[in-house]
């Protein structure tokens, strides 16, 4: 197993607030790695730092062995790192198909050609159809994303991120606001796709049970700092985690 992502003393301060303090994190290729922690712990900030949305105050990020610190989002994305957002970010005014197709188009050399129809990039179209089937939206591919229910928009976003064929997919609370059933099916979907397509998965997830059942590794953040990292069992056993995050309750 090789390391796909590594952060070293990653720190982000907003004024006097340290949203991430010396975060050292290692994600192994092909695993499912979850980040948990109470609200405001700095999970989203961590994702934002890794994906270039925010500039770290200090520390460094390595992806596939290369330093990507300070790169902008599109540069990071080109390296094979895709993400979703805590608040769904899809192209509301476009059809589901076009949402995914634009993402798939990036892999084509002719992605910014001006003189041919986008529909002539058949590869991208084909993959978009495939992915929509994968995420279960194939039958509504010509509806605008804005018309979709909450859960379907989340699925669509996952579809979009996958269409870029990432090596590492980072999902920020992909199931937030979903019912239990939806949550489970969504997570299962993502994991199945990760297996099939061979990408590494990094998740922020609130549902501890699910996290425990699907993760290979779990990182626990609190007040911006990593208080534990390890397998589900190790984390479950960690006293500090129990005390701080889980209020002493047995997992």
């Amino acid at each position: 197993m090789s390391t796909i992502l590594e952060t070293e003393n990653l720190t982000k301060r907003f004024g006097s607030l340290t949203a991430n303090g010396d975060v050292n994190l290692t994600v192994e290729s092909g695993t499912t790695h979850s980040v948990i922690g109470p609200n405001g712990a700095g999970k989203s900030t961590l994702f934002n730092l890794i994906t270039g949305l925010l500039e770290p105050t200090s520390g460094s990020i390595r992806f596939n062995g290369e330093d990507i610190t300070g790169e902008s989002p599109h540069e990071v994305a080109r390296r094979g790192l895709a993400r979703s957002f805590q608040i769904t970010d899809v192209f509301d005014g476009l059809t589901a198909f076009e949402n995914v197709r634009v993402a798939a188009q990036f892999a084509d050399d002719r992605r910014s050609s001006m003189w041919r129809s986008a529909d002539s990039l058949t590869d991208a179209g084909g993959r978009a159809t495939e992915i929509l089937e994968d995420v279960g939206l194939a039958d509504r591919s010509h509806q605008r994303a804005a018309e979709f229910a909450y859960g379907d928009r989340r699925k669509l976003e996952i579809g979009i991120t996958m269409a870029t064929e990432p090596d590492l997919l980072m999902l920020d609370e992909p199931t937030a606001g979903m019912g239990r059933e939806d949550t489970i099916s969504t997570v299962q979907l993502v994991q199945r796709l990760a297996d099939e397509r061979g990408f590494t998965l990094m998740l922020i997830e609130h549902d501890i049970e699910i996290v425990m059942s699907i993760s290979d590794t779990i990182t626990v953040l609190q007040r911006g700092e990593v208080i534990a990292e390890g397998t589900p069992d190790e984390v479950r056993a960690d006293e500090e985690v129990q005390r701080a995050y889980l209020g002493g309750a047995q997992l």
Binding site: P73, H74, L94, A103, F106, A118
Partner: peptide, 28 residues
Amino acid sequence: KLLDSPFGRVVTAIRESERRVSFLGYDT
């Protein structure tokens, strides 16, 4: 024609969410 091209489609997607487009790898 231009707006129907791959370039045009990216431009249209930028209208919907520039952030989303840049996270796909496009330099918006």
